[in-house]
């Protein structure tokens, strides 16, 4: 069953054509990555999925329903959640409060979701009263993921999880993503780091100047000569 489907989506910023006939899909429980360099349209794709920008043509479908004209809150209620680029935590609020905000639609933190997040990231339990802004980059990433998981999504969107982290933390991060994935949540990872994201993904798309230029299984993409040259540097 397809959780998320983009059908020939065209998105504009004002008069500038950003996304050109983007089509992609994420199935239930799948881990898909969307690769692309700077200014390739990765973040715009995510914004289109979330409804922070409206596409001019094409359709965004969640669970088979066309939500192109629906508000962000509606889409999130349908089971989306996002870990934004640069995490965008609420810095002067505690870890616990940050997590609570992720479940805002559910009238306060459901203790079950909170327990699940703490099971996944035990370190956050010790840090729950600490201000999010005082955490290390890796821990902040955990809070951002935990916050997204609080709404118990079916599909987690991740915007450049490797950004600004030490290589060892990037690896740890993708282990966490895999862990979340194994717990049954579908994940769409938007990344520049092709190597590490393809190593855990089922399938991948490659985005270039607003178009999808490649779509294949992760294995095939890793073997793809052009992709190796463009993204892996060898």
């Amino acid at each position: 069953m397809t959780l998320l489907r983009l059908r020939d989506v065209d998105t504009y910023y004002g008069e500038i054509h950003i996304l050109q006939k983007i089509s992609l899909e994420v199935g239930e429980g799948e881990l898909v990555c969307l690769l692309g360099g700077n200014a390739s349209g990765k973040s715009t794709t995510l914004k289109t999925i979330l409804g922070l920008v409206t596409p001019r043509a094409g359709a965004v479908e969640i669970d088979g329903e066309d939500v192109s004209r629906r508000k962000t809150s509606y889409r999130i209620a349908k089971g989306l959640a996002i870990v934004p680029e640069n995490r965008r935590l609420f810095a002067p609020m505690t870890v616990h409060e940050n997590l609570e905000m992720g479940a805002y639609l559910r009238k306060g933190a459901s203790s079950e979701a909170l327990e699940r997040v703490f099971d996944l990231f035990p370190v956050l339990k010790d840090r729950r009263r600490q201000l999010a802004g005082t955490l290390s980059g890796g821990e902040q990433q955990m809070v951002a993921m935990g916050r997204a998981l609080m709404s118990e999504p079916k599909l987690l969107l991740m915007d450049e999880p490797s950004m600004g982290l030490a290589p060892i933390l990037v690896e740890r991060n993708f282990e966490i993503i895999q862990q979340v994935h194994q717990s049954g949540v579908a994940v769409l990872v938007v990344e520049q780091n092709a190597n590490v994201s393809l190593s855990i993904a089922d399938r991948g798309y490659v985005l270039q100047t607003g178009r999808i230029v490649l779509a294949d299984s992760a294995k095939a993409l890793l073997a793809n000569e052009d992709l190796r040259k463009a993204y892996l540097g060898r």
């Binding site: 979330l50 922070l52 996002i82 934004p84 965008r88 905000m101 916050r147």
Partner: peptide, 9 residues
């Protein structure tokens, strides 16, 4: 923006 993405009204 983050608040919006958390679907806060």
């Amino acid at each position: 923006l983050a608040a919006e993405a958390m679907s806060m009204p």
